[in-house]
């Protein structure tokens, strides 16, 4: 009797887990499924759960229409924005962790960084548009790299500051006594010690920048400069019947970052999850 109950409980448990995983996987499977269908099959009111005549035509079509260009835009913008944020964040966090600036600047700045994190970004978009327009950053990838700092910089500062704060000062002091310059200490002592944390922070910042939509939508107009999320949004708005192509682009935009899900999962406990958005 007791064993029967245990088996029953176990079965319910397994079914629940399968149910949860299915809810997550069905939309992703549907993306793959639809991307392999012919345009005619896609608009069939009776949806097929496997493509009847699997085709790569949608993939061919989107690459012919210049998706590589958008893909490389996304890569350029996301990688540059991440690099810039990590360098700025590493330098400033080190200063904040090791030096006391006057007027409580350390604390004020860290609070401000948190405030930025909770702001709705649209609030900054209107005035930034005017400024960027004046200095020629509208409709350039450079402008996006700068604008993305609104997300990636506060995030990187907050996480990297957390690492540096817990780092013992002894190594740095020893190196200083041996006559190393502050810059030397920073580059050859501190940086290697927080390397793994910085790599993980970069990955999180990269995901943020890769998926960013608002500024990419508002600050760039030329089709050849668009990033992938905006291309997808345009597809949804304009070519509503091309579901197959849309799903092909979606899959293409998702695969490069799904590789990192392992890191995201592993680093959860270290305060990274603070904000993926």
């Amino acid at each position: 009797m007791y064993r029967l109950r245990k088996i029953l409980k176990r079965t319910v448990f397994i079914l629940l887990v399968i149910f949860v995983v299915a809810i997550i996987l069905i939309p992703i499977y549907w993306m793959v499924n639809t991307s392999l269908k012919t345009p005619r099959e896609v608009i069939d009111p009776i949806p097929s759960f496997f493509p009847r005549t699997p085709t790569l035509a949608n993939y061919k079509a989107v690459f012919k229409s210049g998706l590589w260009k958008n893909f490389s835009n996304s890569v350029i913008v996301a990688v540059s924005a991440t690099l810039a944020s990590i360098i700025l964040a590493f330098l400033s966090s080190y200063a904040l962790a090791r030096y006391r600036f006057p007027f409580h600047l350390n604390r004020l700045f860290l609070i401000w960084v948190l405030v930025v994190r909770i702001l709705p970004p649209i609030v900054l978009a209107v005035p930034l548009f005017t400024i960027f327009n004046r200095i020629g950053l509208i409709n350039t990838l450079g402008g996006l790299i700068v604008a993305f700092q609104i997300y990636t910089l506060p995030y990187s500062i907050w996480i990297i500051y957390g690492f540096l704060k817990t780092l013992p000062k002894e190594y740095e002091e020893a190196a200083r006594i041996d006559g190393a310059s502050p810059l030397r200490v920073l580059v050859s002592i501190v940086a290697p010690l927080v390397r793994s944390g910085i790599i993980a922070t970069s990955i999180f910042a990269l995901i943020l920048a890769w998926n960013e939509f608002l500024f990419a939508l508002l600050f760039v107009r030329s089709p050849r400069l668009l990033t992938l999320p905006v291309v997808i949004a345009r597809y949804i708005g304009e070519y509503t019947t091309q579901w197959g192509e849309l799903m092909a682009i979606g899959l293409f935009a998702s695969l490069p970052i799904l590789i990192f899900s392992n890191v995201v999962y592993k680093k959860q406990t270290e305060g990274f999850s603070m904000s993926l958005k």
């Binding site: 998926n211 992938l228 905006v230 979606g250 998702s254 970052i257 899900s261």
Partner: peptide
């Protein structure tokens, strides 16, 4: 698998 949705772009999710 469970954390996939939070990594994928919102636009991709909206498309699906």
């Amino acid at each position: 698998i469970v954390i996939f949705p939070m990594i994928i772009s919102t636009m991709v999710i909206c498309a699906v």
